[in-house]
Every structure is written in C-alpha cells, then in structure tokens.
Design a protein around this nucleic acid. Structure first.
Lengths: 331, 331
DNA sequence: TTGTAGGCGTTATCAC
DNA sequence: GTGATAACGCCTACAA
C-alpha cells in the first residue's frame, strides 16, 4: 500500500551510508565491507526497497529487456520458440517484449520501432521473410539481432536453424521407400528455408533415379485450410505421399484425406515439418521432422546474451540437430 | 549507424527553440504555434530523432508497458488470449512483457517482481489459480490488474470471463439428449472456473431428472496424456459421453478412443471446453464451447487501459458471450 | 572501502 | 506561446 516509492536514497539514509554504497550492494559490487553490506541489506529489507529498472536503464543505458518479433504467437511453431527464448532470457535476468507483426511490413516496422524506442538491449527475430525495409531498420542501430528459425541469405546476421535441406532430403528418401509420386508442400519459395528444403527434396529424387516433377510442388501458406484444400488436388494427381513443411498444413491435409475415406498411411503417407504438439495429437499421429523449436529459441537467446555482452562469438550461423519422429502417418 | 543518441536537446538546437517546446511537439501538446511546430518536426526529421521511452518513463512515471503473466505461452489457450492482449495493447501504444510462470508459485513471484521492477503500468494475469502469496504481491502496489479467463473469488480484482456455469449446463444438456452416463472432466476443482462448471453440470443432470454420480467426475491436469489415460477408465465405467474443460485433454481422449476402435460420435460423444484451433484440426472435429479467447484478451487489455488512465469503470466483472460450435464429435 | 557530484533524456512546473 | 529549471531514480567516474 505504501505508494511513496522508496529509493536508493532512503535505503542509504536508513543504513547510514551513501547512496553509492547502496548501489554497489544492489549491483553485487565486490568492493563493500561485509559489515556495511549487511547494514544495507537490512535497510533494503526493512524498507521493502525495490530497484527501479527504468531509472537504472536510463543511467546505465542497459534495460535488461529484449524484444521478440514474430508473425503471431498463436502459431505453435512460434510459441514454442518464444518459450525457449523466455526461459533463457529469464535465466539471464532479461525480460522479453513480444510483438506480433502478422508478417505485414508496415506493422513490423512500427513494432520494431517501438522496441528501439524502449531501448531494448537486443532483438530475436522470428519469421520466415524479412523485407528490405525491415532489414535496413534492424541494421540502422547497433542493437544485436539474432534470427531464430530463419536463414539469413547473406549470413550477416546471426541465426539459429536446423539443416532444412538435409531434413527434406531424409524425409523424402524415407517416403521413396514405398512411393513414387511424392508431393513437396511448402510455404513461399521466396523464403530461404523453403528453397533449402526444395533442394533436399530434389537431391533425394535424383538419388532414387526419379526426375523432378514441378506439378508435385505446392507452394502455399501456413494455414490448416490450405492443407484441407490440398487433398483434392493430391488425389487427382495420383500423388501417394507428401512432405509438408508446416504442421498445420499437414494436419489439414490429413484431415481432408481421412474425410475422403483415404487410409493413412496405407494409401497415403505424410511427413510434416516441425513436430509441434498437434502432430502427436492427431489420429493417426503425424510422422514429423522434430525441429528442436524450444532449443532454437533458447540457443538464440543465449547467443544474443553473448552479443549483448560483447563476448567473442566463434560461429554466428548455428545449426542444431533435428530428428525424425515416426508416428502413424508413415508405414 | 549514427551511434551518438540524438536527444530532444539536439532537436531543440537545430530547430532554434527550447527543449520544452520540442517536448510539447513530440507529445502533441496543443499550445505550440503552427510555425514553430513545423520547425521542430523538420528538425526531428533531419536528425532522425527517436524519443527515448526509458527517459520518458522515468520522468513521467508511466512506461507504456504492461505485463502479461501466464503459465506458459505454448498452450494455445493462453497464446490466443495473449494475442488479443497484444493487439489492443499495441493499439493503445503499449508494449507487453510476457512472462511464463509454469504455474509455480516461486517462479511466479519472481517474474511478477521483475515486472514491478520494470515499472509496468498494469498487469494482465492469466491462469487458473492464484496463490495467496501471489495475490498479496499483486495487491501490494497500486498497479492495476486484470484477470483474463479467471474468476476472482472475492470479486475484488477486475476480470473478464465467460459464464462457465451456463456453458457447462448447456453442453451437458446437449449430451443428455442421447446419453445417460456423462463424464465431467475438468482441471482442479480448487479453481473457481471449474467449480462453476461443475455446478452447471449438476444443474443439467437435475433438470433431466438424473442423479449426480461422483464417480463420473474426473479431476486432472491440462495435458494430452491425461486425456489419453482417461479413455480406459471411461470405457470400463460404461460412460458414453463427456464434457471436457481443456481441449488438449479432449483431444487426448478422442485420440485414445479412436485407437481403441470406439466410434465417435456413434459410441461416444465429446464436447470440449474452449474451441482452440486444434479442436477443428481433429478428425472428427471436436464439438466445443467457443470461448472467445482472443476477445477475452482484448477486452481485458481494454479494461486495463481504462484502469491505468483512471477512467470510471461501470462493471469490473465482465462476462463475454460464448457459443457452442458443433462438429463431428457429437451427433 | 566509501562518499561526492555530474550525468542519463524526458516531463512538468513556473515564470515571462 | 515559449523557455528555464527542477525533478525522476540510479550509475559511475573521481576523490577522499
């Protein structure tokens, strides 16, 4: 109930020391005699003193707050990464301001601007595509940036990813064991992750002595509805298996296939791209590439702390290991 | 690239006015001659000046940042609410710091403490249960709080919810059209939302002339696994329908039933509690109570803005309308 | 080891 | 309408 904010100054008075000493104690500075440290701690306790991070931020130019930019937190893919970020952030005493951009440039520029205005110490950028304007905006300051789950084409920005090409290669090969006509379903091929996947897909085909058929490539968006709509086309094209980058799309596809009486995996096999919880919720469960999303977030944030503390970085393009989780949607 | 932060002072110099005037312009204060306003705006443009929210926060004691406390952002239920919060927050020029508590008191106290330290202007609290310590902590300051999707037992804190009792009553009644033995599956009955639901369930039974059977009540956690495990028990108890508070649990139940060859909805009907996207993803889709989660978040944040701006509130216990979305899991 | 004093970038209160 | 001039709460040389 005490509204009058108690400051470092009040603590100093009660403890009978100067505010500088209180500041030292609060910041864990070693150069304080144990006895005075204790006096200060007692005073802090007594007054229920709470450091004001805003004042601290102004004086030290470090806010211990980072920004997290993502299209929308409602996609499990991003929520999972965000959770990894938050855990490591809180471990290092940072808070994270999450901003949703909906992937709209206009909005993205605006929210990033607000992040800068709040003087965040760093930014983790999630998403799939970065427009030129956003890139410029992000690079117009010295604020460290890490891309989580997104490849930087010119490798200037730090990033944390899995090897999308390899994963696509492996899953395609797996499907090729029982199938010939395999669809490649991804998001926009303007996004580097997807072109990487495409290469992996093509490599696997070639390895199996099959030729690439462009009509088996489906470029679409993230949505469940997109997946639903795909089933029809797949069947009419006599496709018998699919690797799908986004889980929600894979789920939609599975759902529509089941509704049409198609047996999965007997008549159609599916492997989805990121093993979010929903892949396990389905019946049958979706065999899926396990992107370690939480880890991608966690490692990104860890990398960001190093950048913010100006530590030496050995490698700024991190690749984490993925696995393939076999469930009911494949034989 | 310009690292030297340009301040309000630089702008003043370039525009040939005092910093006070610049401040007025930046804050849209009316008492500025149009001509000088233009000079200032030009200078701002020229210097690419960006207001420092931290300094502003210190001077004005308002940070235009709010905190969002939730168990974990990875549950779609909370992600959806969080999205509603963020949209309205950004509409009112607020940013939100999201903190995950995992529902652990210790951690929750810590993250809320960090929120206060950051001088947030308000807090939206999501979750299902608030311990006494947390309640005390939250009420130890004048920072406005709004509970989103959570009932405050003594109605002191503002909150936004749906009418859980009514929803449970309706769904139970719906299931009673074709079934006699209906399970009530919820989270902890220590949580007010769940006891409300329980009352609605009992009301419906009574209305149908059935007596309440305690062995049909399943109190568990949020998890998919919990749902999976339930199927076995349900079948052995000859239960033929269930209303399930949490979607993930309902999904697990559905999944396990299908795996056991039980036909849904022919042999077993399910209605789940919050219509998160996954309910639609399932096959068959889950009939579900549509809790307007996004709106709960949005309305909570709107309410919070009123509280923060000390506007008059007519009612602080808001109830939003719900609907029942019929899908394949009911006849 | 501890204290003094000058910022940090704005807002806000008075005068003019 | 505009300009000084204190705060705001803390950090950080620099002194002592």
């Amino acid at each position: 109930m005490e509204e009058s904010t108690t400051t470092i100054y009040d603590v100093a008075r009660v403890a009978g020391v100067s505010m500088a000493t209180v500041s030292r104690v609060v910041n864990g500075n070693a150069n304080v005699k144990e006895k005075t440290r204790q006096k200060v701690l007692d005073a802090i306790e007594e007054l229920d003193y709470r450091p004001n991070a805003v004042a601290r931020g102004l004086a030290s130019k470090r806010t211990t707050t980072v920004g997290g930019v993502l299209p929308t937190i409602t996609l499990p893919y991003f929520a999972e990464i965000a959770r990894g970020i938050d855990d490591i952030a809180s471990m290092y005493q940072y808070n994270v301001i999450l901003v949703n951009s909906d992937g709209e440039e206009e909005k993205e520029l605006k929210v990033i601007e607000s992040l800068f205005s709040k003087q965040v110490d760093g930014i983790v950028y999630m998403g799939s595509f970065m427009t030129e304007k956003v890139r410029k905006q992000l690079q117009s300051t010295r604020t460290p940036i890490v891309l989580a789950g997104m490849i930087d084409v010119d490798k200037r920005m730090s990033s944390v990813n899995i090897d999308y090409r390899l994963a696509a290669h492996q899953t395609t090969s797996e499907l090729l064991q029982n199938n010939k006509r395999i669809a490649f379903v991804s998001g926009s091929l303007e996004e580097a992750e997807n072109t990487e996947r495409m290469v992996g897909y093509q490599e696997a085909l070639e390895e199996a002595g099959l030729k690439f058929d462009e009509s088996l490539v489906f470029e679409g968006n993230y949505s469940f509805e997109n997946g639903l709509a795909l089933a029809e086309q797949m069947l009419s094209k006599k496709i018998d298996a699919a690797i799908v980058s986004y889980d929600t799309v894979a789920v939609g596809l599975l759902n529509a296939l089941l509704a049409k009486g198609v047996k999965v995996p007997e008549d159609f096999e599916i492997i989805s791209g990121s093993n979010s919880p929903i892949t396990a919720y389905m019946y049958p469960g979706l065999t899926s590439v396990n992107q370690p999303l939480y880890d991608i977030g966690a490692v990104s944030m860890r990398l960001l702390t190093k950048l913010m503390h100006k530590e030496e970085i050995e490698e700024n393009q991190l690749i984490l290991a993925h696995q393939i989780i076999n469930r009911g949607s494949t034989k």
